[in-house]
Simulated scan of single mutants.
Amino acid sequence: MTTLGPHGKLRIPGSGPIKGRGAASWVEGRFERRSAQACDDGWDSLREDDPTFQPAPLRTHVTEETARSIISRNQSPDVGFSQSVNPYRGCEHGCVYCFARPSHAYLDLSPGLDFETRLFAKVNAPERLRAELGKPGYVCSPIALGINTDGYQPIERERNITRACLEICAQAGQPVHIVTKSALVLRDLDLLAPMAARGLVEVHLSVTTLDNRLSARMEPRAAAPHARLRAIRGLAEAGVPAGVLVAPVIPMISDHELEAILEATRDAGAMSAGYVLLRLPHELKQVWREWLELHYPQRAAHVMSLVQQMRGGRDYDSGYGTRMRGEGPFADLIRARFNRARRALGFAGLPPLRTDLFVPPREASPQGELF
Rank of each mutant, 00 (worst) to 15 (best):
G8E: 00
L10Q: 02
R11C: 14
G20D: 04
D40E: 14
Q54H: 10
Q54S: 10
Q54L: 11
P55I: 03
E65T: 13
T66Q: 13
S72R: 14
Q75F: 07
S82Q: 10
N86R: 02
C98E: 03
C98D: 05
A100K: 00
T117W: 08
P126T: 00
R128W: 02
R130H: 15
A131P: 09
P136V: 03
A144S: 15
R159T: 05
T162V: 07
A170R: 10
A172C: 05
V176K: 02
L191K: 05
L192R: 05
A196L: 07
A196P: 12
H204I: 00
A222G: 14
A227N: 08
R230A: 15
A236P: 11
P241R: 03
V244Q: 12
L245Q: 11
L245P: 07
P248C: 04
E263R: 15
A273T: 03
Y275P: 05
H282D: 15
E283G: 08
V287T: 14
E290R: 12
L292H: 06
L292W: 01
A301S: 15
S305G: 14
Q308W: 05
Q308T: 09
Y316K: 09
R337Y: 08
R337M: 03
F338L: 00
V359M: 04
A364V: 09
S365K: 10
